[in-house]
């Protein structure tokens, strides 16, 4: 018994060690990258005017922070992204439900969805600006159309994949169509829904930043475009770093939602 315990202990130790190695290298890569970048810039191997440097990025971030400007840009972009994310996710799921419900509607709309999916949504940019004006509405709309089509396609295929035999089982119990949907189709598509939400995090960021590239006076996308135009690469890099952090946080939130929702796995 004691021997077994030590075997198990060894195994656990090995797991711990493996995890530590992974975490160590994750951090090491970042640190080395930043150090090399800083070093190359300091030694003038790369032109820090064009490539910026970690220290310059930090200084830029600090300046943006002390002027208070940083937060208004961050909040603008987060608001647009979250609005796009929620509107598109809810709308997309609802449309997918309707299309699951009626096979006829599904067949009718199939070619439209396929075409809309392949269309680069940025092509609609000029029209969106004309329709919604050069403001936040246009940007949110951009985020929504980029995200909603993917949501519809993913969720619909998640709904359709429901096990036919389980549907048969519910029918034999006398279940109505709405019971089949609520008791079986929706819960079995929950993993699909979570993975769709994860994709949507990325999609709505693309939408809001792309929207800000087209029209905006505020936001991280605006900072990036502005920084590029006036050759302030420090600003571009600093905004990109902030974007990375924000996207990671949003992804983390979805992962936590996933863990609380899908306990049975």
């Amino acid at each position: 018994m004691k021997r077994q315990l030590t075997e198990h202990q060894k195994y656990l130790d090995k797991l711990k060690k493996d995890k530590a190695i992974v975490i160590f290298f994750r951090i090491a890569i970042l640190v080395i990258f930043l150090a090399v970048w800083e070093l190359l810039a300091d030694l003038k191997v790369i032109d820090s005017f064009l490539f910026s440097s970690p220290s310059r990025v930090l200084v830029t971030l600090f300046n943006l922070h002390s002027s208070g400007e940083l937060y208004s840009h961050i909040f603008t972009t987060i608001f647009e992204t979250l609005a796009g994310f929620f509107i598109a996710s809810i709308l997309g799921v609802l449309i997918a439900v309707v299309l699951w419900w009626s096979e006829k509607l599904r067949k009718i709309f199939e070619p439209y969805i396929v075409v809309l999916n392949s269309l680069p949504k940025i092509a609609l940019g000029p029209m969106i600006i004309i329709w919604f004006g050069a403001g936040m509405k246009a940007i949110i709309f951009m985020a929504v159309i980029i995200t909603v089509i993917v949501t519809i396609i993913n969720m619909l295929s998640g709904f359709i994949e429901t096990d036919e035999n389980k549907i048969l089982l519910l029918k034999s119990m006398g279940a109505t169509k709405s019971q089949i949907f609520l008791k079986l189709v929706l819960p079995s598509a929950l993993p699909t829904m979570i993975s769709t939400l994860k994709i949507n995090v990325g999609m709505s960021w693309i939408g809001s930043i792309m929207g800000e590239y087209l029209v905006s006076k505020r936001g991280l996308g605006y900072l990036i475009v502005y920084g590029g135009q006036v050759f302030k690469l420090d600003l571009v890099m600093a905004s990109t770093v902030v974007l990375c952090v924000l996207a990671a946080i949003m992804y983390l939130v979805v992962s936590i939602v996933e863990r609380t929702l899908i306990k049975w796995k």
Binding site: K166, S188, I262, W264, K265
Partner: peptide
């Protein structure tokens, strides 16, 4: 044929 228990 299968139990078709709902895993959730």
């Amino acid at each position: 044929q299968k139990d078709h228990l709902f895993p959730w």
